[in-house]
């Protein structure tokens, strides 16, 4: 088949995520300014930047949760609203009330609500899929546990299982490794690498500069604007870090020295 036919009507179909001229303001104060960035398919990408840099806002505006003042976004060549099914989202853990009366299995099953359609309740098959997703994050024994009785790391894994059950192509995760124990962090990284190795695109807001180079192969540095983007090896430099963080953290210098200067 002719390639041009297949790609007709698509915008930048070769990219998993394509963001152009994106500007977002809260109360007329811009928190994201003229953002252009692209993420190729099949990478595990980190979005880093200081607190308040607009990382969460960036993900939310890609997912239509925040209305941008300008700009557009495509996922695999089409606007997000046409690609919803292909996108999985793991919000910041603190964004929900964990005292809500529900179980781990129930939360994971919520990942299937979009596919279930109106009036249909999740059935045995759906529960089995949710259970399998829980098993993938090592939480099968906690299926019937009330979510308030899970540790922070376990709650995070439940959230990831909820996204896994969607069987998406592109995953957005907002600080999934914040405040979790070392075991959970290892589990999460292993799952995310597994997704990438299966050809999915994984985009993670990440707070720990020390682990950027070991976990990720693509990097977007953000501070209201895009400071740098590209393969980690080229992007993770002392100069870029200083431009993103403004030298505000002493830790930066030690993190930057990890970069071999060659």
């Amino acid at each position: 088949m002719d390639d041009r036919l297949v790609t007709a009507g698509l915008h930048e179909p070769g990219l998993a995520v394509h963001v152009e001229d994106l500007t977002v303001s809260y109360h007329s104060k811009p928190v994201l300014w003229d953002i252009d960035f692209d993420i190729p398919p099949g990478v595990m990408a980190a979005i880093v930047g200081p607190n308040g840099a607009g990382k969460s806002t960036l993900i939310k505006s890609i997912l239509d949760l925040v209305r941008p003042t300008a700009g557009h976004v495509t996922i695999h060549g089409l606007p997000y609203r046409d690609q919803r099914r292909k996108v999985g989202y793991v919000p910041q853990r603190s964004s929900v009330d964990w005292d809500f009366p529900t179980t781990a299995l129930d939360v994971v099953t919520m990942g299937l609500y979009g596919q279930l359609g109106w009036l249909r309740r999740p059935g045995r098959k759906d529960k089995d899929r949710a259970r399998a997703a829980l098993a993938r994050v090592g939480m099968e024994d906690y299926a019937d546990r009330q979510i308030s009785q899970l540790s922070g790391g376990q709650q995070q894994r439940v959230f990831i299982a909820r996204a896994l059950v969607q069987e998406a192509d592109v995953y957005f995760l907002d600080e999934p490794m914040a405040g979790v124990d070392a075991t959970t962090e290892r589990t999460i990284v292993k799952i995310l690498h597994g997704l990438r190795d299966a050809g999915k695109t994984v985009i993670v807001v990440h707070h720990d500069l020390q682990t950027v180079r070991t976990y990720f192969d693509w990097l977007v540095m953000l501070n209201v604007r895009v400071i740098a983007q590209g393969p980690v090896a080229e992007t993770y430099t002392a100069e870029n870090l200083r431009r993103a963080y403004g030298g505000q953290i002493a830790l930066l210098d030690s993190a930057a020295t990890l970069t071999p200067v060659d």
Partner: peptide, 8 residues
């Protein structure tokens, strides 16, 4: 429980 996720 999670209105943002519901929107996605």
């Amino acid at each position: 429980f999670d209105p943002s996720y519901a929107r996605t």
